[in-house]
């Protein structure tokens, strides 16, 4: 793995689950930190940069959706992935509408978890790069190409 991977924050009130996600992603070479709830997560985010937050939807204290809202308000460029128990697809869909990057249904296979998380990280990094380029006054063409990469489509001029 290269250092272009941004850091991941795993939020779940279930310690075992938290550690599993941590271990699986860590094995893939990601930089992973964990939090046992929404408040703790926000505290961590205030201290360190992070590309993606993977959070459980139903937790004691702050709910996953509340955390999502807070992150969007404070750090709009961080991708948020919600984990839901099966049977609560409606909640997940609702979360997607409110701006979550993706959702995972428990039980999720490690492979699927990794795939989704890495895709979201990639999107987030690209988006960040676009903003950075734009801030630096980079020409439109480069910008379009980067955007197309996010969308996963080849640029028409290429």
């Amino acid at each position: 793995m290269t250092e272009e991977w941004g850091a991941i924050l795993v939020v779940d009130d279930d310690a075992e689950m938290r550690e599993l996600v941590h271990d699986v992603l860590k094995d893939r070479g990601h930089q992973v930190s964990t939090a046992g709830g929404g408040e703790e997560a926000l505290k961590l985010l205030a201290e360190q940069d992070c590309a993606v937050v993977v959070t459980d939807l139903r937790m004691k204290g702050m709910q996953g959706t509340e955390l999502l809202t807070e992150i969007q308000r404070l750090y709009p460029d961080i991708g948020v992935i919600l984990m839901t128990a099966f049977g609560s697809v409606d909640n997940a869909v609702e979360a997607m509408k409110r701006g979550a990057s993706d959702y995972l249904t428990k039980p999720v296979k490690n492979e699927e978890l990794t795939r989704v998380v890495e895709r979201v990280i990639r999107e987030t990094s690209l988006r960040r790069e676009v903003s950075r380029l734009r801030a630096l006054g980079i020409d439109r063409k480069t910008l379009y190409r980067k955007l197309a990469e996010i969308e996963g489509k080849p640029h028409p001029e290429e």
Partner: peptide, 23 residues
Amino acid sequence: SGMAHEIGTPMNVILGRAEYLLK
């Protein structure tokens, strides 16, 4: 659906750990 919420996480842990170890 209530049960699903409750057992989703432990099942995920079992599944994930098993896959993790298998690897």
